[in-house]
Structure formats: C-alpha cells, structure tokens
Design a binder for these strands. Structure first.
Lengths: 230, 230
DNA sequence: TTTTGTGAACTAGTTCACAGCT
DNA sequence: AGCTGTGAACTAGTTCACAAAA
C-alpha cells in the first residue's frame, strides 16, 4: 500500500484527495521533515544567486544521500531535468506549494509559562512562515499580561472563538504535564488539526489530528544515554 | 552486526566497553528514547504503589506493542519473570542504572535568549534528574544578569573552565542560526560529549560527540504538511 | 496456565545501480 | 557525457509466534 504516489504522473494532477495531487498521509514523517530542510536550503541558495543545483550538490550540504533527495522529490512530481539537475527557482516554487509555505500559517500557543512565552517571542517562527495568532492560559494572574516582546496572554476560554475567527489549524501545548490532557481535549474541540506537544506526557489524538511530541527531558536523557560512563 | 547484545547474558556482565555490560552505540535511538519513557512510567507506577507490571500492561499505557517493550529490555538483560511479568522496583532500578539516572547530570545552556532562559528556568529538567550547571552567552549586556527564576548568565569564555570543574558532559545550544556553528565548535573544544541543538542549522559533530537537532520550525512545518488543505 | 525472551517474518526507510532523457 | 527518476537490493525497526521457564 501507499505506492500510489510513486507513479509517473506530473505534479499538476488534481485527481487525489484534496486539491493538490497527493495524499499527505501516505508521505512518511521523515520525508516531510526533509522537504522542510530542502526548502530552507533552496531559499539560501536563491538568496546567494545560485540558480541551479544537482541532487549531489544538495546532498553535500546535509549529510544525505543524493538518491534520498531524488526519491523524496519524486513523491510529488518530476521537478528536475535529466543530465542537468534542478532549477532552484522551480524546485523552490514546488516545495513552497507542497509545504503550504505560500501563506502565513497562524498558530496558537496554549500555556504561557516560561517556555510558552519564549516560543511566542521566538523570531524563527515568523521568519519560517508562521505567525503567533494567540498565546493562551487559564491563570487569571497571567491573562491580560504580555511577554517581553509584547504578545498578550489571552483566556484559554476564548480559544475556540479565536481558532474559528483567525483560521488557526496548529496548536502548541506548553502547559505542565498534569494539565496537558485536558488542554489537548480543548484544542481538539476548538478544531485544531495539528498539535506540537511540549508537555512530558504521551497524548493521544483523534484520527484527523496530527500530534507530535517534543519531550525535552526525553531528548536530553536519550542523548546522555550515549555518553560513555567511565 | 550489532547483534552481540541480543545474547542470553545476564545484565551484570562487565565484559563489554565501559563498565556497564553493553555498548550504547549499538542501541538505536528509538530504543534509547523508549527506555526513558519506560522509566518515567515505572516511577509513576511505583508512586501509585503498583509493585508489578507485565509488558502488556506497560504497552497499553503508551500505544506500543508488548514485544517491542520486551525486546527493548532484552537488549540489557533479563529483568522479568516468565509467567509473571516485571517487578516494578527491579526494572526501575535497572533502567535507572542504564540511563545514568542515578546521579544528577549537569548541563550547560549556551545562548541566553528567550529560549535559553526559558529552558534554564524549566522545572522539568530538574525533576528529570538534570541540573542547569550554567547558562552562557557572549553578549556583555546579558552577562551577569539573571533569568526570572534567578539563573545567572555567565560569559561563554568561561565555558571550558566550568565544564572542567563541574564535570559537565551535556550542552544545549540556543543561539541564533548564524552563531550556532561557532558555538558548537566551542562546546566540542570545551569537552562536551552530547549536544542538544535548537538552532535551525544542521551541525556536524566529531565522532565522540552525540548531537541531536530539535528544530522547532521544521517540527511545525512537518506537522502543517499533514493538515488537509481545502 | 501465564508471560517472558527471542528467532523468524514482516514493514518501513535508505542506498544502489542503471535505464532513460537532455 | 551527465544527472534524474526509479525498480531492486539492502538495512533498520517492528511485530509475530512460539519455546522456555515459573
């Protein structure tokens, strides 16, 4: 299964789920994450005035295999020219569309603690094509206050309305572990379709919501596992 | 290759690299990350007074397969009792030793921006057995100041000395993209053996240093890739 | 019985190697 | 000649299924 995308069709076909010619669910998370890396790289190349790149040249920048890159791209169409390589502008345009980077994606951050506030102020999100549409909390002491960079903390009760009005699809959970399950439920109920969870608990999402856990403690512990003990 | 750990040896053997009876390098990152999840779960079970658990019972808590758990554990020894299951205290003790959770691991955070400060103040690290040994920056305006929770910002020039004196092995990089490569070099030179990198650049580390990238923008973009576009 | 520990089977992800264009 | 696109081969990770032990 899931081979239906490997066929020799052009990227402009419009006969699969949605309006984009491919079904994202059949693309592995590894591939999706690499697309993001490729796009970032192409933006850099373009700003350096480089108009043209081969899979080999791209592969050297990360430590990746050239066929990996070609396979990843082939999932979505034929963007290269045999014997020549890829035109930076063309490939960038396609990846931009594939990743939805052509519009600004509003995100909601739930949990205005240290981490939530830091993320709300993080400039990398804006430059990455995201916008902090709202920072929410349920603590009356925090609601109405603002982060260092001036993002106002809103009442989490107003989340559904904000999601609705501002077309938010993506939520970031930065509440303590104990509150995470309940907050996740609120996010699902409000209509969010993707959740990045920083709380140190495994949440489980309904089938139409994509969830990714970024557990900082587990990341650190995994790293430290590999340090040789004397 | 790397099958040498699957044999029927007991967990107390001391004949492999280091002093712990197994070579961490031959353990996959997936397995290592799950060990951390298991240990956290066992701590919870123990505090609830539950003395005993089967792989099936553990598997139900996350959405994992019971044989996955048994295989993960079997990498390190035979900790269970056939027909019965695992004794929580016994398994917890072994995982605690395997993950090095039996001592407090000092970490250095380099980059005292929003994110670095938020991480320095994050209580989850402390409760997870880590201690913020130092928060470093090269900006004279920041050096000497303190985070909300009172962590002092130190001069990054003093990193090697701090690493040496305080036995720090783990570094967290939270500087802007442009500074990351140079900061990483300083971390390697100072003797850090594991790096958690939040800067949106792929760094490459010497072979004796373990590096993990946590790129927040790529995480968000990967998530948003799976949201159905109308 | 019951449940572990583990080869065997399976599935997913990566790399190879080459046919097919330019 | 050179590089893409892609089946085939390979490698890593997961799940199955059952012998071994309590």
């Amino acid at each position: 299964m899931s081979r239906q995308l490997q066929s020799r069709r052009a990227a402009t076909d419009r006969d699969l789920p949605g309006s984009m010619g491919f079904d994202p669910r059949s693309v592995s998370e590894f591939t999706a994450a690499r697309l993001s890396v490729y796009l970032r790289c192409l933006e850099a190349l373009e700003s350096q005035g480089i108009r043209h790149a081969t899979s080999q040249a791209l592969a050297r920048r990360f430590d990746l295999n050239p066929s990996q890159i070609r396979k990843d791209l082939a999932t979505f169409g034929e963007f290269g020219v045999r014997g020549v390589g890829y035109e930076v502008a063309v490939l960038k345009r396609h990846l931009t569309a594939i990743l939805g980077r052509d519009r600004i994606r509003p995100i909601a951050i739930v949990g205005a603690g240290h981490l939530g506030q830091a993320l709300a102020d993080y400039r990398g999100f804006r430059s990455g094509g995201f916008a902090i549409a709202g920072l929410f909390d349920d603590d009356p002491a925090k609601i109405g206050s603002a982060t260092r960079a001036g993002v106002r903390v809103r009442d989490v009760e107003s989340l559904p309305e904000a999601v609705d009005r501002e077309g938010i699809r993506i939520g970031v959970i930065t509440v303590p572990a104990a509150a995470a399950a309940e907050v996740a439920r609120r996010c699902f109920a409000a209509g969010l379709k993707a959740i990045l969870n920083f709380a140190p608990v495994r949440l489980h999402a309904p089938p139409d919501v994509r969830l990714k856990n970024v557990d900082l403690t587990i990341n650190l512990e995994t790293l430290s596992f590999y340090i040789p003990r004397e």
